[in-house]
């Protein structure tokens, strides 16, 4: 079952075409790792899928329905429709973006209270469950300022999960973390993968991508340069640029 479908997606900032003509189908249960050099458009692509950025052209279909109103080749978007989309397509950020004036459980509850309009006890119960799932039940009343980077990211994941998204987008979730904290976050993401969650993962952790992903996409110059299974892309890349990219990542591996 195709959850999301992107067709001819393009994004232009000023005079720069960051994304050109991307087609992607995401089936339920797929875990897609997106690799690419900086400036290749990976984050922009992800942000277009939950409309944090509006595509310049092309369209996105969620659950079979086009997001926005099509008028010939142009699509126009209404904010109310986009906020509804964002409840179904969750995102975890590189910089966590937790709300510093709320506790961990407060952060996780916020979407349920304000967007879903659930009662406090209902939202709290759910939030505590999600925090327990990411292993932070004991930090419920702690403020983000007193959490480590890894803990903050796990709270961010719990916050996204609380909204029951159909699709999870991870935008370099471990790039801002100290190396020894990366593991705890990857473990959580792995557990979500084992549950069968559908996810798109922009990451530099090639090893993790190899183990978790069902498909790997390599972006270059704003388009999909090469895609395939983890074995195909990470172990036997066919295209030169993919090879060069992987080589630069392996430069100092031992």
């Amino acid at each position: 079952m195709t959850i999301l479908r992107a067709r001819a997606l393009a994004k232009r900032f000023g005079t720069i075409d960051v994304l050109r003509d991307i087609d992607l189908d995401v089936e339920r249960g797929e875990r897609i790792a997106i690799l690419g050099a900086s400036g290749s458009g990976k984050s922009t692509f992800l942000r277009c899928l939950n409309f944090m950025e509006l595509p310049t052209s092309g369209r996105v279909e969620l659950d079979g329905r086009v997001v926005g109103s099509e008028r010939g080749r142009d699509v126009s978007y209404r904010e109310s429709e986009l906020t509804a989309v964002r409840q179904k397509v969750g995102m975890v950020f590189q910089q966590f973006n937790l709300f510093p004036h709320m506790t961990a459980v407060g952060n996780v509850m916020e979407g349920l209270r304000t967007v879903r309009r659930q009662s406090k006890p209902e939202a709290r119960a759910r939030a505590e469950k999600e925090l327990a799932r990411v292993g932070l039940a004991d930090k419920a009343e702690t403020y983000p300022a007193h959490l480590s980077g890894g803990q903050k990211q796990r709270v961010a994941i719990a916050r996204a999960l609380a909204m029951d998204p159909e699709l999870l987008l991870f935008d370099e979730p471990t790039s801002a973390l100290d190396p020894e904290l990366v593991g705890e976050v990857l473990t959580v993401i792995l557990s979500l993968a084992e549950e069968g969650r559908t996810m798109l993962l922009v990451t530099h952790e090639l090893g993790f991508a190899y183990h978790v992903a069902t498909r790997v996409i390599f972006l270059a110059d704003g388009t999909i340069h090469e895609q395939g299974t983890p074995d195909e892309i990470l172990k036997n890349p066919k295209k030169e640029r993919t090879r060069a990219f992987l080589a630069s990542h392996r430069q100092f591996s031992f």
Partner: peptide
């Protein structure tokens, strides 16, 4: 801006974000 991103990502609108997240801070 990350605060706006975090709020929008869980489906909050402009008014909700302003009221619950941005103004209090």
């Amino acid at each position: 801006r990350g605060q706006w991103d975090g709020a929008r990502a869980i489906g909050m609108g402009w008014g909700q974000t302003m009221r619950r997240i941005v103004l209090p801070q």
